[in-house]
């Protein structure tokens, strides 16, 4: 039998000082010591960073079992679950922040998901690839084929991204849902925040990703 003391690399506590730039941008919006739910937390990079760098009570939901197991093996509180079906279980206002990073476009009912995010948390932080960015538009216009980019790297027949939208579309959805946009920014292809006042026509044209802080109105 294997020596139970020898845990896989992922199981060894190793606070991450560095994380992906777009996750860093999200982390910077989070007040220390708060309660955070990261939906679609993947391998737990953001959760781990928040738990160790900001002493946050960090919880996660991840759809892939391998991702969940890797997270729990490094001491993070993560459950296997689905943004579309499992958010309804959470109590209203149970979290300070609900984070949905690069996941909205893969949900089957993004409208309901955004509604749930602002219900369960005081603030929702949502990022997604912007289908309105100029080179995507150009690819479709000139190539006549579904655009494949760095952020949208899968072919149309195998992409998990079934509900792509543009920054303007998302702003409209927030309006429909009666959700306040507290902060909006765009990220470039490296995930770095760009100093553009989003939402706006220029943001929709130049932003690789949209990053929004939302809260329920009233």
């Amino acid at each position: 039998m294997t020596d139970p003391r020898v845990l896989p690399v992922a199981a060894q506590a190793r606070p991450r000082a560095t994380i992906r730039v777009d996750l860093k941008a999200i982390a910077e919006m989070i007040e220390p010591g708060t309660r955070v739910l990261d939906i679609g937390c993947g391998d737990g990079a953001l959760l781990d960073y928040l738990a160790h760098e900001k002493r946050v009570d960090a919880r996660g939901i991840e759809i892939s079992q391998a991702g969940v197991n890797a997270c729990v093996a490094q001491g993070l509180s993560v459950v296997q679950g689905d943004a579309d079906t499992d958010l309804k279980d959470y109590p209203t206002g149970g979290f300070d922040y609900a984070i949905l990073s690069q996941t909205l476009q893969a949900t089957s009912d993004p409208k309901a998901v955004v509604g749930e995010l602002v219900r369960i948390a005081r603030r929702a932080i949502v990022s997604f690839p912007n289908f309105g960015v100029w080179h995507v538009r150009l690819k479709l216009l000139l190539g006549g084929r579904m655009p494949v980019t760095d952020t949208l790297s899968a072919a149309w027949y195998e992409t998990p991204n079934i509900h792509l939208c543009t920054i303007d579309d998302f702003v409209d959805l927030c309006g429909t849902l009666g959700v306040s946009i507290e902060k909006a920014m765009v990220l470039d292809s490296q995930g770095r925040p760009r100093s553009l006042a989003a939402p706006g026509r220029l943001a929709n044209l130049l932003g690789e990703q949209g990053l929004f802080v939302l809260r329920r109105r009233g």
Partner: peptide, 10 residues
Amino acid sequence: NAAAANVSFV
């Protein structure tokens, strides 16, 4: 989850 418990599930 409904009780806002700190839970991991594998």
